[in-house]
Simulated scan of single mutants.
Amino acid sequence: MMPQLVTVGVKRPDRRPIRIWVPVLPLVLVLSPVLVLAVLGGTVACHVYRIDAVRALGTGWRIVSALPGTRFDVEYSRTAVLVAIR
């Protein structure tokens, strides 16, 4: 299943925390022309490096499908960035 929502939160010490919800489907629809170019570029790269393009696309889809439930936190100095993919 494709991820549906990405939540990004930024915690700063002297300011209010910021939380942004990004719906994935509308973002994919808006960026679909770029996505088509990326797939074509990836196919050409697979051909150059002699990799099976269908298998590479299938592997990429499996990685995207495994993203829901992923969460990672990055802390640098006193600022923290929290990302959750649902």
Score class of each variant (00 low, 15 high):
1 M>W: 09
2 M>T: 11
3 P>G: 05
3 P>Y: 03
5 L>W: 02
7 T>N: 13
9 G>I: 01
10 V>H: 04
12 R>H: 10
12 R>S: 10
13 P>R: 14
13 P>I: 11
13 P>F: 07
14 D>F: 11
14 D>N: 14
15 R>G: 08
15 R>A: 12
16 R>D: 12
17 P>L: 03
18 I>G: 00
18 I>Q: 05
20 I>C: 07
21 W>M: 15
21 W>E: 14
22 V>W: 04
22 V>A: 06
22 V>K: 03
23 P>T: 08
23 P>F: 02
24 V>Q: 01
25 L>I: 11
25 L>S: 10
26 P>C: 06
26 P>M: 05
27 L>H: 06
28 V>Q: 04
28 V>L: 12
28 V>D: 01
28 V>S: 02
29 L>F: 05
30 V>T: 13
32 S>W: 11
32 S>A: 14
35 L>V: 13
35 L>K: 08
37 L>A: 12
37 L>Q: 09
37 L>K: 15
37 L>E: 11
37 L>P: 00
38 A>L: 12
38 A>T: 09
38 A>Q: 10
39 V>P: 00
42 G>H: 05
44 V>A: 09
45 A>I: 06
45 A>C: 03
47 H>I: 13
47 H>T: 13
49 Y>L: 13
49 Y>V: 09
51 I>T: 12
52 D>S: 05
52 D>A: 03
53 A>Q: 03
54 V>N: 10
54 V>Y: 07
55 R>Q: 12
56 A>L: 01
59 T>W: 10
64 V>N: 04
65 S>R: 15
66 A>C: 02
68 P>K: 11
68 P>S: 08
69 G>N: 02
69 G>F: 00
69 G>R: 04
70 T>Q: 08
70 T>F: 05
77 S>Q: 15
80 A>I: 07
80 A>W: 07
80 A>R: 15
80 A>G: 06
81 V>L: 06
81 V>Y: 04
82 L>F: 09
83 V>L: 08
84 A>P: 01
85 I>M: 01
86 R>Q: 12
86 R>E: 12
